[in-house]
Structure formats: C-alpha cells, structure tokens
Amino acid sequence: MQNPYLPYPVRIDEIITETEDKNLKTFKFVFLNPEDEEKFSYKAGQFAELSVTGKGEIPIGIASSPTEKGFVKFTVNKTGLVTKYLHNMQVGDIMGIRGPLGNWYPWKELEGKNVVIIGGGFAFTTLRSSIVYMLENRDKFGEINVIYGARSPGLLLYQEELKAWEAAGDIKMHITVDATDDPDWKYNVGFVPTITEEKAPPADENTYAIVCGPPIMIRFTQPVLDKLGYAHDHIINSLEKRMKCGIGICGRCNIGEKFVCKDGPVFTLEELNNLPFE
C-alpha cells in the first residue's frame, strides 16, 4: 500500500523574491530521486502539501506548468508558522512535497474555447501555471484574456513574465493596479471588477472565465460577470480552506458533502450554488 502521507524529498534549487514587500517568494524545487518527478505528474490548477520537516505541512498551489520539466515551483505568502519558517530557508535545504493533490481546471472542456482569466493578489499562482500551459498549447485554445490586478505595481507576481506575455501578444493581457504614483506605469489603474467590466469579452457558449483571488475580489467580480451574461457553469473558481491531509480523509475542509482538497479546489459556480454556503 502506497503511503499517501509520505512526501517526496526535494531540495530547494532557487528562491526568488517576487514582491517589493518581500512577503512573497517563489521556491523552485528539484526532486532528490529523479523518478519522483514522474510520479508527481500534475495538471495546471492542482496543489501540493509542502512539507517543512520539523514545522509541518501547508497546501500551496502549483505555480509551475506541467510543460516545464526538471523542477516544480510554488509561490508562498508569508503568513504564519510554516510559511515564515520556509521564507527563512536557503537554497540547498532539504524538505518534501506531497501530491499532486485535488482536481484541476477543466482542460478537456476548455479545449477550443475562449478563456478569460481573472486573478487578484497572490492567488495568481495556479493561473501562472495555466497561462504557461496554454501558451505551450496555444493552438488548442481560442482567444485568451488575462485580467490580473494587485494593490500596486511592486506587488504583482512574475513581473518579468507579465511583461513578456504582454509584448508577445499571443494573449490579451490586462494588468492593473488599484493605485500607483509611478509616472511610467503604462498599464491599467483600477480594481479588478472594474477592469473586468471594461475588458472581458462578452459571454457566449464558447467562453469560460477562471476567477481566482481574495474573497472581496470574487464578491465584486461576480455581479460584473452576471451583467456580462456569463452562465454559472462557465465560471470556474478555485477555493481555499484550512487543510491537513489534502486527500479527503481528515474531515477538515468540507463544504457540505464535498471536500475542497479532493473534490476541489476547482469548482464551477454552478456547483457551488448547489452546496451549502460555507
């Protein structure tokens, strides 16, 4: 019997500080046993438990794309016990990752469709994975729009990549910040819901929205999507709950009879409408 709680040992290969407040760092991991990389085969939208030996485990969305080989990447916000400790770890340190866990964005269903990605703050991690994946498989998708916002320019994740995507023009990028006093800022200024209203393509049978961000962003983006006519089975969310096991056993992360860790974290809004509102 495979022990589903046993993490694969990994080494920290690179640490990148993403934001000017230094609260977000991207960790690039390499598997100590190369065959584990094969076992950790994942899809964009899944997450893993990062196992910091001696401190505990944390569920973190996978930020690298399945099309990127030889490593896996996660972007971690400094929050509490485990994340603070992780932020102080060094390149070369040994820890573990357990997964991949949960479901993924419905890539089969999205094939041939237009996709609009709406992200806010540091929930952009699995959206990066998705964008890289879609760019590698560009011919499989229709029009791709990305609306991504942060409080200020220095708080945007993956800034170099954002610029490169914008410049390449394969996808329509709509980067925005709540406010900035940078005179050279050449992108949008405004909250994500406002920019969504201005830039999101009109709804149709072939267009899906993936929405991922802090609860407040989700709350105010929803009416905009309703106004644009997006059907609730065409709106895809990724949820967060406190987790431990990540495999639907410890009983912690349920909404009604569904476990966010195993049946999610990805749900359509229609699915969520049919679950208790927790």
Binding site: N3, Y5, L6, P7, P9, L32, S51, T53, G54, D93, I94, M95, G96
Partner: peptide, 18 residues
C-alpha cells in the same frame, strides 16, 4: 506517522522515514 532527524551530519536528514 513518520520519524526524521534534523541532524545535518546524518545522511538522510530532513527526510521522512516510515
């Protein structure tokens, strides 16, 4: 569930043992 050592002089330090 697992045992481990944080002693970096040991070969399998920081790795979970069943």
């Amino acid at each position: 569930m697992f045992n481990y050592t944080l002693d970096e002089s040991k070969e399998d330090h920081h790795i979970m043992k069943e």
